[in-house]
Protein backbone atom coordinates (compact mmCIF):
# COMPACT_ATOMS: atom_id res chain seq x y z
CA UNK A 1 0.00 0.00 0.00
CA UNK A 2 1.30 3.42 -0.89
CA UNK A 3 1.31 5.62 2.13
CA UNK A 4 0.51 8.70 0.05
CA UNK A 5 -2.78 7.31 -1.32
CA UNK A 6 -3.91 6.10 2.04
CA UNK A 7 -3.23 9.51 3.46
CA UNK A 8 -5.30 11.11 0.71
CA UNK A 9 -8.30 8.91 1.39
CA UNK A 10 -8.21 9.54 5.09
CA UNK A 11 -7.87 13.25 4.49
CA UNK A 12 -10.93 13.14 2.25
CA UNK A 13 -12.98 11.13 4.72
CA UNK A 14 -11.79 13.39 7.51
CA UNK A 15 -12.97 16.44 5.61
CA UNK A 16 -16.24 14.71 4.71
CA UNK A 17 -16.84 13.93 8.35
CA UNK A 18 -16.04 17.49 9.27
CA UNK A 19 -18.50 18.67 6.66
CA UNK A 20 -21.11 16.23 7.96
CA UNK A 21 -20.69 17.46 11.51
CA UNK A 22 -20.96 20.98 10.17
CA UNK A 23 -24.22 20.18 8.39
CA UNK A 24 -25.67 18.51 11.49
CA UNK A 25 -24.60 21.43 13.62
CA UNK A 26 -26.08 23.88 11.15
CA UNK A 27 -29.36 21.95 10.99
CA UNK A 28 -29.51 21.89 14.77
CA UNK A 29 -28.87 25.58 15.06
CA UNK A 30 -31.67 26.26 12.58
CA UNK A 31 -34.20 23.74 13.89
CA UNK A 32 -33.68 24.33 17.61
CA UNK A 33 -34.82 27.97 17.61
CA UNK A 34 -37.81 27.05 15.41
CA UNK A 35 -38.80 24.27 17.78
CA UNK A 36 -38.38 26.53 20.80
CA UNK A 37 -40.29 29.30 19.06
CA UNK A 38 -43.31 27.03 18.63
CA UNK A 39 -43.53 26.40 22.38
CA UNK A 40 -45.84 28.97 23.89
CA UNK A 41 -44.23 30.85 26.78
CA UNK A 42 -46.06 30.37 30.09
CA UNK A 43 -48.30 33.30 30.90
CA UNK A 44 -48.50 34.22 34.53
CA UNK A 45 -52.20 34.51 35.03
CA UNK A 46 -53.40 35.12 38.53
CA UNK A 47 -55.58 32.06 39.15
CA UNK A 48 -58.31 33.12 41.55
CA UNK A 49 -58.98 30.82 44.49
CA UNK A 50 -62.60 31.84 44.80
CA UNK A 51 -65.26 33.39 42.65
CA UNK A 52 -68.89 34.45 42.91
CA UNK A 53 -70.54 31.81 40.73
CA UNK A 54 -74.18 32.87 40.87
CA UNK A 55 -76.87 34.67 42.80
CA UNK A 56 -78.57 32.32 45.24
CA UNK A 57 -82.09 33.32 44.26
CA UNK A 58 -81.35 32.73 40.54
CA UNK A 59 -80.45 29.10 40.95
CA UNK A 60 -83.52 26.94 41.56
CA UNK A 61 -83.22 23.36 42.84
CA UNK A 62 -82.43 20.83 40.10
CA UNK A 63 -80.77 23.56 38.03
CA UNK A 64 -77.19 24.46 37.26
CA UNK A 65 -74.94 27.13 35.88
CA UNK A 66 -71.60 26.91 34.10
CA UNK A 67 -69.26 29.72 35.12
CA UNK A 68 -65.72 30.91 34.52
CA UNK A 69 -63.31 29.90 37.26
CA UNK A 70 -59.94 31.37 36.38
CA UNK A 71 -59.17 30.14 32.90
CA UNK A 72 -61.39 27.05 33.02
CA UNK A 73 -65.11 26.41 33.12
CA UNK A 74 -66.75 25.14 36.32
CA UNK A 75 -70.26 23.98 37.09
CA UNK A 76 -72.41 24.95 40.05
CA UNK A 77 -75.50 22.93 40.62
CA UNK A 78 -78.36 23.17 42.98
CA UNK A 79 -79.30 19.53 43.44
CA UNK A 80 -82.82 18.16 43.54
CA UNK A 81 -82.29 18.02 47.31
CA UNK A 82 -81.55 21.77 47.35
CA UNK A 83 -77.88 21.23 48.18
CA UNK A 84 -75.33 23.38 46.36
CA UNK A 85 -72.35 21.61 44.83
CA UNK A 86 -69.59 22.84 42.53
CA UNK A 87 -67.15 20.96 40.34
CA UNK A 88 -64.63 21.58 37.64
CA UNK A 89 -66.58 21.77 34.38
CA UNK A 90 -63.89 19.99 32.41
CA UNK A 91 -64.72 16.39 31.62
CA UNK A 92 -61.88 14.12 32.76
CA UNK A 93 -62.11 12.17 29.51
CA UNK A 94 -61.24 14.52 26.63
CA UNK A 95 -61.82 17.91 28.25
CA UNK A 96 -65.23 18.84 26.89
CA UNK A 97 -67.39 21.01 29.11
CA UNK A 98 -69.99 19.03 31.05
CA UNK A 99 -73.62 19.99 31.76
CA UNK A 100 -76.25 19.13 34.32
CA UNK A 101 -79.18 17.05 33.10
CA UNK A 102 -82.20 17.80 35.28
CA UNK A 103 -84.10 14.93 33.64
CA UNK A 104 -81.49 12.36 34.71
CA UNK A 105 -80.28 14.23 37.80
CA UNK A 106 -76.74 13.56 36.62
CA UNK A 107 -73.82 15.55 35.30
CA UNK A 108 -73.44 14.63 31.65
CA UNK A 109 -70.85 15.19 28.94
CA UNK A 110 -72.32 15.45 25.44
CA UNK A 111 -69.11 14.63 23.63
CA UNK A 112 -68.86 10.94 24.51
CA UNK A 113 -71.86 10.33 26.76
CA UNK A 114 -69.84 10.43 29.99
CA UNK A 115 -71.87 10.47 33.22
CA UNK A 116 -71.13 11.71 36.75
CA UNK A 117 -73.37 11.52 39.78
CA UNK A 118 -74.30 14.50 41.97
CA UNK A 119 -71.03 14.11 43.86
CA UNK A 120 -68.98 14.33 40.68
CA UNK A 121 -68.12 10.63 40.66
CA UNK A 122 -67.69 9.12 37.20
CA UNK A 123 -70.39 6.47 36.99
CA UNK A 124 -70.83 5.70 33.28
CA UNK A 125 -69.17 6.21 29.94
CA UNK A 126 -65.52 6.85 29.28
CA UNK A 127 -64.46 9.38 31.99
CA UNK A 128 -61.57 7.81 33.90
CA UNK A 129 -61.69 10.07 37.00
CA UNK A 130 -64.24 11.99 39.05
CA UNK A 131 -64.67 15.73 38.55
CA UNK A 132 -62.62 17.88 40.87
CA UNK A 133 -64.94 19.20 43.60
CA UNK A 134 -64.96 22.79 44.84
CA UNK A 135 -66.19 24.28 48.09
CA UNK A 136 -69.45 26.21 48.03
CA UNK A 137 -70.34 28.92 50.53
CA UNK A 138 -73.51 31.01 50.41
CA UNK A 139 -72.94 34.51 51.70
CA UNK A 140 -76.07 36.62 51.61
CA UNK A 141 -77.25 36.31 48.03
CA UNK A 142 -73.85 35.34 46.62
CA UNK A 143 -72.89 31.74 45.98
CA UNK A 144 -69.11 31.71 46.38
CA UNK A 145 -67.13 28.81 44.98
CA UNK A 146 -63.56 28.24 46.10
CA UNK A 147 -60.84 25.70 45.55
CA UNK A 148 -60.79 23.54 48.62
Amino acid sequence: MEPGVDQNISRRSFLNNLLGIGVVGWLGSVLFPIFEYLKVPPQSEAEPTSVVAAKFKDLKPNHSVVFKFGSAPAILLNGPDGKMRAFSGVCTHLQCTVQYRPDMQKIWCACHNGMYDLNGRNIAGPPPKPLQEYKVVVKGDDVIVSKA
Binding site: F67, K68, G89, C91, T97, Q99, C109, A110
Partner: peptide
Protein backbone atom coordinates in the same frame (compact mmCIF):
# COMPACT_ATOMS: atom_id res chain seq x y z
CA UNK B 1 -67.72 30.16 24.17
CA UNK B 2 -65.21 28.29 26.34
CA UNK B 3 -67.54 28.70 29.31
CA UNK B 4 -70.62 26.91 28.10
CA UNK B 5 -71.36 23.19 28.14
CA UNK B 6 -70.69 21.08 25.07
CA UNK B 7 -73.98 20.88 23.15
CA UNK B 8 -75.87 17.59 22.96
CA UNK B 9 -75.46 15.61 19.73
CA UNK B 10 -71.93 16.85 19.11
Amino acid sequence: DPFISAPAGI
